[in-house]
Simulated scan of single mutants.
Amino acid sequence: MQRWVFAFIAGFLAVIFFHQPLLGLLHAYGVVPFAPFSIAATVPLQVPAWLSACFWGGIWGVLMVAALRWQGGSPVPWLKGLLFGGIALTTVALLVVFPLKGMGFDSAQLPGRFLIGFLLNGAWGVGSLIFIRTLQGR
């Protein structure tokens, strides 16, 4: 049980300390049109978007630990986090979340959106594993 709680906390914190700061950099350089830490209300609970992202980051943290069977002793855990976050989260965002939110795009935009998603979600994955390793101890 403690392992799952740590995984949730790690994923939650990774949004705050890795995903959103990178989003801020991408926004500052004009790569993405939206700023980090948005307080725009989300549907259906009307919580700020950044808090919703943190919650889902926690859920994904649990899923990542379950999928990777995290043991804490892997020699290259950051690579697993980078690939899991970059590929799994970005694919789900593009194929499930964006259509549900009515955020359509044409196929010409797919490579760029995937690259931006890979960077943001890969940063989240690396951050999650750093926090998991910290919370669990070495």
Rank of each mutant, 00 (worst) to 15 (best):
Q2G: 11
R3W: 04
V5M: 06
A7T: 08
A7C: 12
F8K: 05
F8L: 10
I9R: 03
A10N: 02
A10D: 01
F12I: 01
A14I: 02
V15T: 11
I16H: 03
L22G: 08
L22E: 12
G24I: 02
L25T: 11
L26H: 02
H27G: 13
H27D: 12
Y29I: 13
V31N: 13
V32P: 02
S38E: 08
I39R: 06
I39Q: 06
A41I: 09
A41S: 14
T42G: 09
L45F: 11
L45S: 10
P48W: 00
A49V: 09
A49L: 13
W50Y: 15
S52W: 11
C54D: 05
F55S: 00
W56K: 04
I59P: 04
W60A: 10
G61E: 02
L63C: 13
L63E: 04
V65M: 08
A67M: 11
L68V: 09
L68N: 02
L79G: 03
L79P: 03
G81N: 00
L82A: 02
L83F: 07
L83I: 13
L83V: 13
G85I: 01
I87E: 02
I87K: 03
I87T: 14
A88C: 12
T90E: 06
T90V: 14
T91P: 03
V92Q: 11
L94K: 10
L94H: 12
V96F: 15
F98I: 11
G102R: 05
M103L: 12
M103E: 07
S107L: 14
R113L: 15
L119A: 15
L119V: 12
L120I: 04
N121E: 12
G122V: 01
A123Y: 00
W124M: 04
G125C: 04
V126N: 00
G127E: 00
G127T: 03
L129C: 05
L129H: 01
I132T: 14
Q136D: 15
Q136G: 05
